[in-house]
Design a protein around this nucleic acid. Structure first.
Length: 556
RNA sequence: AGGGGUAUAGCCAAACGGUAAGGCAACGGCCUCUGACGCCGUCAUCUCUUGGUUCGAAUCCAGGUACCCCUGCCA
């Protein structure tokens, strides 16, 4: 029910599409999100998903979901499923347009033979090392392979035998015959096919040879009728090759590739290799660990798809490297949740309070608004009694200047209940305050003073006898450095040892005991929380902190 | 410098030869039964730099500088 109010601003991709539509170059646009199913999607992918699906939606076109599954050595069914689920969760639909590059393998193979017949591809028998040496360097041209000029028939025969599985992995490859002296390394006779006796997650054991990305991507775009093939900057160098295939093959269309800068987030790592490492070395608890920048992690943490979409719109899109501050993402969830999260009272680190002048056996209920700014969200009753818990941070025996919570001798309001005055404390043998004593003002029932006096501070509380015990997990950034990738140093040295704090003695208002796992709450004065989807149990909830509330006091 | 890119505020980012949008952050102030939310205000005489063209330049031209990407049978 949340509307995304983030204004749609101009960017170079929208401008290109507007021009193409206005000039009549295209009547409708077709984009695609083309993940390789070799890992879980992360927030950087969300940028690409929002761009591709968002652009298609904005301009009345369509967006395909296509698995770029050309390397079975790294790809798995598990990843295919998680990717579909994540895209759906983000709020996008591909309808009938689910594709796999591997569905095009036969066509790609035929095109490879076509290239051979045209004298534009050949079977290479040099070893990996030799190919590397022959390739030359960034500043020196490469040299031609001794196999580069063999007859078409011989190439065809060898290639067919590669397909038939006659040769072991690595024995041969098929290469395009372009230009070993090209300044663009991608044009120095790129490899088109390699031999891989590995079953494929989507097409099973049908193939012994698999096409490389470059030989599959553009042609798949053409087959699907993609008009705008949007990818990240590192593929810009591949564009001449992308064009070369489209120009030299009888493809049914000619998509155009456009590049944008990938998302970088502070206090996070985004490379698949590093995310794999965090998971497989047990540094985090799986791909959906709430501290992970994966969509699964963000989702479990409690972020909403609306917030992630708003984030992707807000950060814009350009062609220069940029690092978005984590706080931008956090602010997006706060904005979303502030609108719609019901409020509740929860004490994370309890400090016992006894209201000495309140009857021992008495309990009374107060009506608490579920959302003070949105009365239509209703209210619930909270129970008050003689013994309560308040937040340890909300009491100070020797308050710093400007502190207006509970402190000996002064008044503070217990939200929705009464105004109380602290009259004394009980300390343990080490001098720590373990219990606070107060007297309440019976004339302030509901929280307002009968004489109209202003009470500066209002704190949250929970009745000791009526509270629900809970575990609460406080997450913080995974790294201590804003750029853990910096300078090639080992990013793991920047792991934040306090990235998660588990509080096992939290006390919640009773209404939270059976909280629905999909409901996000604002625990007043603290932050937004949601029950953990794996570990929360009815009556014994486990809450994840999604994000804190802004805190002008703590900042001082 | 082999090739390809990018330079606008602390972080993103508009502007398409007509006199520097917007968001986040920050900083003041107001409001407040959440130190939240909300509201008001401040925040680039200037667009990496040096020249040039022009009545007029972030936008065009020339030369510098900085940073990013490319030598996988990965994508």
């Amino acid at each position: 029910m949340t509307t995304e109010s983030t204004p749609v601003s101009s960017n170079f991709l929208r401008a290109i599409i507007e021009d193409d539509l206005a000039s009549g170059k295209h009547e409708t646009i077709v984009t695609r999100f083309p993940p390789e199913p070799n890992g879980y999607l992360h927030i950087g992918h969300a940028k690409s998903i929002c761009l591709n699906f968002g652009l298609a939606k904005q301009f009345g076109g369509r967006c395909h979901l296509r698995f770029d599954d050309t390397n079975p050595a790294k790809e798995e069914l598990e990843y295919i499923e998680s990717i579909k689920e994540n895209v759906r969760w983000l709020g996008f639909e591909w309808g009938d347009h689910l594709y796999y590059a591997s569905d095009n393998f036969e066509q790609l193979y035929q095109w490879a033979e076509y290239l051979i017949q045209q004298g534009k591809a050949y079977v290479e028998e040099l070893s990996v090392d030799e190919i590397r040496q022959y390739r030359g360097t960034l500043t020196d041209p490469g040299k031609e392979s001794p196999f580069r000029n063999r007859p078409v028939e011989e190439n065809l025969d060898l290639f067919r035998r590669m397909r038939a599985g006659e040769f072991p992995d690595g024995a041969k490859v098929l290469r395009a015959r372009i230009d070993m002296a090209a300044p663009n390394m991608n044009l120095r006779d790129p490899v088109l096919y390699r031999i891989l006796h590995t079953p494929h997650p989507h097409v099973g054991d049908a193939w012994r040879i698999y096409p490389m990305y470059d030989f599959a991507h553009g042609q798949s775009d053409a087959i699907e009728g993609i008009t705008h093939s949007i990818c990240t900057l590192e593929f810009e160098d591949h564009k001449p090759l992308y064009e070369w295939f489209l120009d030299n093959l009888p493809v049914p269309g000619h998509p155009r590739q456009y590049e944008f800068a990938r998302l970088n987030l502070t206090y996070a790592v985004m490379s698949k290799r590093k995310l794999h490492e965090l998971v497989h070395q047990g540094i985090v608890n799986g791909w959906d660990d709430p501290r992970m920048p994966t969509l699964s992690g963000i989702r479990r943490r409690g972020y909403t798809p609306e917030a992630v979409r708003a984030f992707c719109e807000r950060i814009g899109v350009g062609r220069g490297d940029s690092w978005i501050d984590l706080s931008v993402l956090e602010e997006c969830v706060r904005e979303d949740l502030n609108e719609r999260a019901p409020r509740a009272l929860a004490v994370l680190r309890p400090l016992k309070v006894v209201i000495d002048n309140y009857p021992v056996d008495q309990a009374e209920e107060f009506e608490a608004s579920n959302h003070p700014q949105q009365p239509e969200m209703g209210s619930r009753m909270i129970t008050f009694s003689r013994e309560l818990y308040i937040e340890q941070d909300d009491f100070a025996e020797n308050p710093p200047k400007g502190f207006f919570r509970m402190t000996p001798g002064s008044e503070v309001r217990l939200r929705y209940a009464y105004i109380v005055r602290c009259t004394g404390v009980v300390k343990d043998e080490y001098g720590s305050v373990i219990e606070v004593h107060c007297e309440y003002d019976p004339a302030s029932r509901g929280g307002s003073a009968a004489d109209g006096r202003k009470i500066k501070g209002t704190i949250h509380w929970v009745s000791a006898a009526h509270a629900c015990d809970a575990e609460i997990r406080l997450f913080d950034r995974l790294f201590t450095d804003p750029n853990p990738d910096r300078g090639g140093a080992d990013y793991k040295q920047f792991l934040n040892p306090d990235s998660v704090e588990i509080l096992t003695t939290a006390k919640l208002e009773a209404s939270l005991a059976l909280a629905d796992a999909e409901t996000r709450f604002q625990f007043e004065r603290q932050g937004y929380f949601r029950p953990d989807t794996q570990d929360s149990l009815p009556g014994r909830p486990v809450f994840n902190r999604i994000v804190t509330l802004k805190d002008a006091w703590n900042k001082k």
